[in-house]
Amino acid sequence: MTTHPRPPDAADADALALQAPELQLMVLDVNGERHEVITEPRRTLVDVLRHELRLTGTHVGCEHGICGACTVLVDDRPVRACLMFAAQAEGARIRTVESLSAGSCGRPDELGDLQRAFRERHALQCGFCTPGFLMLAEGFLAERPDADREQIREVVAANLCRCTGYQPIVEAIEQCAAARRAARSDVRKEK
């Protein structure tokens, strides 16, 4: 019989942890609004968005960059907000799910086109992964408005959903992309 204390690396209590936390002022540009936050530098972007700015639409699913529930746009590109310290986001434009709809009251008539497509296609069930997929799609379609279904599927594979089997998510994004393309070509025709 042997006894097992905790592994030696963890047993070496962190000297920094025993000090009062060092705080840092961060200025963040989120959904076009400037926020000043004083917090520890070790706070991830998703934790600061959720707990300091109370933008709780962005969710935490795995904290190691695989599930994508925390996906937000940083300078227009979808990124994992769990794999980024808030301090790294200073000077960047951050967009969260809260910026997607026309209004801010969460009424059905205020939904943006991508959100409407998700609703029409039943692309969400529990809704926990949904903000991540929305931001992933929003960033992707902005860059690749002409993406076809296979390319959309490839991008949807970036995030995990446990409810839908993904097909409705792919279809919703495809539908939204097609509608945007049609609207663009209408505008062109009018000109």
């Binding site: 933008l55 709780t56 969260t96 969460g106 969400l124 949904t130």
Partner: peptide, 23 residues
């Protein structure tokens, strides 16, 4: 009938309230 879900608008706009959203 496939009535559109009542749950969707809040969940799509980040206004759902999950347990970690309670402060």
């Amino acid at each position: 009938r496939s009535v559109p879900r009542r749950e969707d608008p809040r969940l799509l706009t980040g206004r759902g309230r999950f347990v970690d959203d309670i402060a």
